[in-house]
Design a protein around this nucleic acid. Structure first.
Lengths: 341, 341
DNA sequence: CTGAAAGCGCTTACAG
DNA sequence: CTGAAAGCGCTTACAG
């Protein structure tokens, strides 16, 4: 391989000069710089990453810890991942993708061996075992997902509570007084998926404040079970004119459920979901929805992480992205029979 | 940080002894080994990855180059990725996930800087620009996807030609004599997605051999366009009793298309697709299909790559996985009106 | 503006 | 069975 020594020899300068020409950390005479750069190009020299990491204690790599839980909707993960890898690259970092089952073990191994400059954690649970380890690690960490105790870490998440309120407000404002909310399955909550109840609780409180009725349910996270669930929930509340979905599988199953029931949105039922625009596009889902902002969350997490790595800050942030509804025309006034009574 | 020197000092031995205790590359007296291991544990020593890479020219990292093309069905990618990352970890390797637009540039940067020991390429096109570079790289490379010239590289792919024949054979054997094949969009082919015509051509030849009629079409790769496409294709061939799908979006759209047309599979129309079991599960697709074997291909690519990295072989392989149909009960005899004539 | 040298934390021939 | 030392390819104070 061609080393910095080869470049130095060919350019007739010292290795330090080549190094400084590369980094720009001290001034170099134009002629020498020109000569060095020419040689670098002609020899196709690229610094050895391991050597550089050893000398600088910087790897220019971040780790992305993602867990693929069988009951989570996997395709939704891809947007977060792409948000992270793409933004990291723009900022000069490569991404080590870690999908090990045992996140604690993986974190320890990678942190201790100094393979990366920082961590982005996906799928953060309310009481996440990885967090204590991450707090003691020498590398900074950014989370996508709000844990109960975020101290010492940077946290990015959708403001699920605000999302719940927004969904209720949107339908209430159009005249809906009875609604059904379908959440992720209960075991997602039990595993620490706090976003489920953050949205549900806030939606419930807001409905109460407004004097509207909101029936909340856990639905399955896969087809065809979720289809049967949806039928059951709708059967149970014939007076409900609004449907709120915090469950990707439910959104994907809804078109055929509505078709079977001969219902159209928004004429017969107003529907509002919570999923990514990309998900909507892939499955051509016709429902207005609070955007998950997956790629955006991935990007912000990386940006903050890099800020820490490069010492532009030592403060920690908890950023909850305000919910935004992407309108797709599935919400409207309730049908006349159910009009404001 | 705790270094090998700290361990050596605490154990009262030389650094080389600690190193050898770690690697097992030379025999150590039981007492010394015991002592060293105790210290390693108590000091929580993990070797510095950069230093080790510099000394050994081995990083224990592989790169996974994935391109997320907007017209490709992104969720299908995840299975390949997980197959790669999980198997790599089992074999002692971490995975650098590279999603850069410019695959050639990324490959060059990562190869030249010696960040990884090998490459796995996803989305390999027929005439893939990355391949020449990969052939000259010092690190070995394994491809998922068959290019026109695989020399000097390891290739893993589904045997799409055999898949095409198998799909036709399966329906022909049940009595179908007129079928429709819906492929990915034409621009996927133009970009070098050879699997599209490999399946289509083989299916076509086999149909011809058998004296059956096969109408082949390119369909959109997104909803709702693909739904309209499907209606169009079915309208054009009222006598067709079998439908072959080499297009994930088409499979996802088909249930509602059939519902609209009041058709049931297999009673009115036999349907056979080509997609992953995971995809089928996620969307509860009720159609028998040739499994994409995504995770399996990812695993095999990694295994062969590691074999090269660790010098267990210098031979190159082209492995085309034989197609296997996962039966889901969507194929049967043609309806009476269309029976063997 | 530039060079010689030390040092990053490992591994591995070399020597005993 | 074990240790002292060289070397991997960089960066960066130190000196001029």
């Amino acid at each position: 391989m061609v080393t910095i020594g080869d470049v130095a020899k060919a350019a007739g300068v010292s290795r330090s000069t080549v190094s400084y020409a590369l980094s720009g950390k001290r001034s170099i005479s134009p002629e020498v710089r020109e000569r060095v750069e020419t040689v670098i190009r002609s020899l196709n020299f690229t610094p050895n990453a391991g050597a550089r990491a050893l000398a600088t204690s910087q790897t220019n790599v971040i780790a992305l810890l993602a867990q693929f839980l069988t009951d989570e909707f996997a395709p939704a993960m891809l947007q977060y991942i792409l948000g992270v890898t793409d933004r990291a690259r723009e900022l000069g970092y490569d991404t080590l993708m870690v999908t090990e089952e045992d996140g604690v073990k993986a974190l320890k191994r990678i942190s201790d061996s100094r393979m990366v400059d920082g961590f982005v954690l996906l799928n953060v649970a309310e009481h996440d075992e990885r967090l204590n380890l991450l707090r003691t690690a020498v590398q900074p960490g950014a989370l996508i997902g709000l844990p109960s105790d975020p101290h010492g870490l940077d946290v990015f998440d959708l403001d699920f509570a605000a999302a719940g309120r927004l969904m209720v407000d949107r339908l209430y404002g159009l005249g809906h007084r009875e609604m059904v909310l379908v959440s992720q399955p209960q075991h997602v909550v039990e595993r620490g998926g706090a976003y489920v109840w953050r949205l549900a609780n806030a939606a419930h409180s807001r409905a109460e404040e407004l004097g509207a009725r909101l029936h909340t349910y856990f639905g399955a996270s896969a087809q065809p079970e979720i289809g049967a669930d949806l039928h059951r929930f709708l059967d149970a509340h014939p007076g409900a004119t609004g449907l709120l979905l915090n469950n990707e599988a439910a959104a994907a199953a809804l078109p055929s459920v509505l078709q079977t029931r001969h219902l159209r949105a928004p004429d017969d039922l107003s529907v509002i979901g919570r999923y990514s625009d990309d998900f909507a596009r892939t499955f051509s889902l016709p429902y207005s929805a609070v955007d998950s902002a997956a790629a955006e969350l991935g990007r912000r997490a990386v940006e903050q992480l890099v800020r820490h790595i490069e010492n532009h800050t030592s403060d920690h942030v908890v950023e909850l992205i305000p919910p935004v509804i992407t309108e797709r025309g599935s919400v409207g006034a309730p049908p006349p029979a159910h009009d404001l009574r």
